[in-house]
Amino acid sequence: MSNRNYEAMFILDNNAASADFEGTSAQVDEILQKHGATIVQKEKWDERKLAYEIKGHRRGTYYLTYFSADPDMIRKIDEDVHLNEMILRHMVLTLERPIDEHIATQAAERELLAEDSRKNSLGGWGGRRGDRDRDRRGPPPRRDAAPADDAPAGAPAKADAPAAKAEAPAAKAEAPAPEAAPAKADAAPEAKQDETKTAATEAGAES
């Protein structure tokens, strides 16, 4: 008969699969082979937390198989899989292409999408350009200290400003004297942090 290609994913009982994966996955293979399917590829896809509980289970082992079988037998496979208690859920998909071609293109497409999102991950307006500006100016002013207390907001902001100014010459000095500059640059943020800390503690004492 004319066989068709299928992809089937099974969620196996995690308790059984983590103890003996070979044994539980062999049960699935047995069901498939009983109905005349020839398994081309099988793999343990993942062991992960389920998005919602299935039959009282929070975790499951995903078992992915590719096989070719007679279309009339898929219904019988479904019935048998439903009767097995080790299998929490399953899904059989029909493939339009040969199995190895399908697997290869799927992997390639996943890679393409991943690379695309890597390239275009910096969403919004500005993107890279804004980052470059910020790097040149040095680290951004600390905002976490200022909005914590509303009334004396002016005090920490003022404390920040001279520290930022002190940092800028240090960055400039980096070119002629590379050895001395890092020490300065290191010292500057520390001093800045101390200042902000003291300012915050003072503000706390006041309120």
């Binding site: 293109t105 799927q106 497409e109 996943r110 393409l112 999408l113 991943a114 695309d116 275009n120």
Partner: peptide, 14 residues
């Protein structure tokens, strides 16, 4: 942009 033919349900990240 990625010139994909199909969208795979297993590609959870996407």
């Amino acid at each position: 942009r990625a010139r994909v033919y199909e969208i795979d349900y297993k590609d959870i990240g996407t």
